[in-house]
Nucleic acid binder design. Structure first.
Length: 512
RNA sequence: GCUCCAGUGGAGUAGCGGCCAAACUCACGGCCCUCUCACGGCCGAGCCCCCGGUUCGAAUCCGGGCUGGAGCACCA
């Protein structure tokens, strides 16, 4: 009895037990650990805070995948906040804002609200002024290296005890653009002797003279650092649960100092480790990919060799498959390796049943396509469109005068091979001769079953894969499929049809 | 160097004092099914970092070590 069948029987015999079974199934799907102290909040509110300095790579998907899944589990609220407060070293890419939102949609999520930090400078300034009033911040003109030395020694710098008036004046001068880069910063007063040197009097605002690429923010010169900006925003937007990488572990500790000055409650925090992905030659780094795209080594962000979301999308991989694989990784703080095969497996499960089959002969360096005359058999082969769904019909592939096989499928001279959906043929050394045989020979005599295409009536194919491009020939039914449709090339793998040029179809390889 | 975090089969996750000679997903090997190397089914191999301690009992608690990671930026 199959699973479906079993379920139906159970529904007849014991409907209440079925309910139980199904609710258990649902729990199984929620593979993420419980968020801490959820019961203390009316609503779980989370944010993803991408830096829009380029389109997303695969690792970036973890943030929307996990946070979005929590949103679904707790019926929560999700903000997408672009932390674009460094116009220079992490210079925002104007296209990336929409590309990222698009990628979030591809993964199947939609933020409840979208904010850009670069729209909110006046809010940060006003909180900085409040912090100065609280005695929680001071302007500092120490050269970086000197401050670092004092800090490491646990010594306060001479500016730490400035009077509030002066600090206000100097901060306003920072905002007004009266200092040049490196001349003045605003520091949060933490604990200069804190045992963790990373937490001692960190910078909250600095001067950046390079204008922000967004027109709306181009006039600002005094920019907040992430720890200040995101701390303020998390509170102002009512975030209850912060979920982010271990690289920001100290961030929470820094931000607590600011929260303490303001008397705010710090949100719950969950940290996860870094994700590595196997199966790619190209490093999963925005800057590396950007270089390769700019230099032309990659055709673009959606080049199948790039470990990007755009690439997986073009290959026909469903966003949910990526989400499930990411969710399966959980939220542990150790670094994790994500196997691409896990994504492929999730994807295969989703598309196998609905994907039509077709034949494609690869013309590879390690064993190309061979063309052979064929005589004595029927005019055409009729393999099913899907092996498990007869109702979807059969393909009609005329053989004409001959067929093409992949060289590695060619039998020894005098031996037989079964052309899938057509019949048995014998290789004479010159060509193929039809042999009237039953399918049993494939089992009893170990006659191999292979795929094939007509030598003449075929369609040239360019198959782009993560390991490089492969050319080949497919049955001409391929022309009927529109861009974006998925196919399984039997014995080769799943592909997404990308488009038809004159005489040639381009497909992107997903996985086998 | 200082600070913090983590260590369960090949990869990931669960278990968090007895039900654990450890479960699940992916990968791997074999067999079966099959006109695909897909899908499906069955079987298999393989794991609690080390050393001490607490306890009747530890993968689970404590201490030390080892290993790995993160931070110590006027990056995010």
């Amino acid at each position: 009895m199959g699973q479906e069948e079993r379920r139906e029987r159970l529904a007849e015999l014991a409907p209440d037990q079925l309910d139980e079974l199904e609710s258990e199934d649902e729990e199984d799907d929620q593979r993420l650990p419980e968020l801490p102290n959820v019961e203390e909040y009316d609503q779980v509110r989370m944010r993803m805070a991408p830096n829009p300095n380029g389109p997303w790579h695969l690792g970036s998907a973890r943030m929307p995948a996990v946070i979005g899944t929590y949103k679904d589990i707790y019926d929560g609220w999700m903000l997408c906040r672009f932390d674009d407060t460094d116009p220079e070293t992490k210079r925002p890419d104007l296209d990336a804002y929409d590309q990222i939102l698009d990628a979030v949609g591809y993964l199947g999520f939609e933020p409840d609200e979208v904010l850009r930090a670069s729209d909110r400078l006046d809010i940060y300034y006003s909180h900085a002024r409040d912090l100065i009033d609280e005695g929680g911040a001071y302007t500092c003109s120490c050269p970086q290296a000197e401050f670092s030395e004092m800090k490491n020694a646990g010594e306060a710098c001479p500016h730490r005890d400035k009077d509030t008036e002066t600090v206000h004046e100097e901060f306003e001068a920072m905002v007004a653009g009266e200092y040049s880069e490196g001349e003045m910063v605003l520091r949060v007063k933490t604990d200069i002797k804190h045992k963790n040197p990373a937490l001692r009097d960190f910078v909250a605002f600095r001067i950046i003279e390079t204008p922000h690429p967004r027109e709306e923010a181009a006039e600002y010169r005094c920019w907040p650092m992430l720890d200040f900006q995101s701390g303020i925003d998390d509170h102002l937007t009512g975030v209850t649960h912060i979920i982010r990488g271990i690289d920001l572990q100290d961030s929470a500790k820094k931000q607590r100092f600011v929260y303490d000055y303001f008397g705010w409650e710090y949100p719950e925090v969950v940290h996860w480790g870094h994700v590595n992905v196997d199966g790619y030659d190209v490093a999963m780094s925005t800057s590396t990919i950007k270089e390769l795209v700019d230099s032309g080594e990659l055709d673009g962000w959606d080049d199948p060799r790039a470990p990007t979301l755009a690439s997986l999308r073009r290959r026909g991989i469903r966003g949910e498959a990526i989400v499930d694989a990411m969710v399966e990784l959980g939220t542990s703080t150790s670094n994790v390796d994500l196997a691409m095969s896990a994504i492929y497996s999730e994807n295969r499960e989703r598309i196998d049943d609905e994907t039509d089959r077709a034949f494609m002969i690869r013309d590879r360096d390690d064993g190309g396509a061979v063309e052979l005359p064929l005589s004595g058999g029927p005019d055409a082969g009729h393999p099913p469109i899907h092996p498990e769904h007869d109702d979807r019909g059969r393909r009609d592939i005329p053989v004409g005068a001959g067929v093409m096989l992949e060289a590695t499928d060619l039998p020894q001279e005098g031996e037989r091979v079964w052309l899938k959906g057509y019949g048995c043929v014998r290789y004479t050394g010159e060509g193929l001769e039809y042999v009237d045989a039953d399918i049993d020979v494939t089992r009893e005599d170990d006659v191999a079953i292979v795929h094939w295409v007509p030598a003449e009536d075929n369609r040239e194919v360019l198959m782009r894969t993560p390991d490089g491009d492969v050319t080949g020939y497919a049955e001409s039914t391929l022309e009927a499929y529109e861009a974006d449709e998925l196919l399984q090339f039997e014995r080769v793998g799943f592909v997404r049809v990308d488009g038809h040029d004159d005489g040639r179809t381009t497909v992107y390889f997903a996985h086998n």
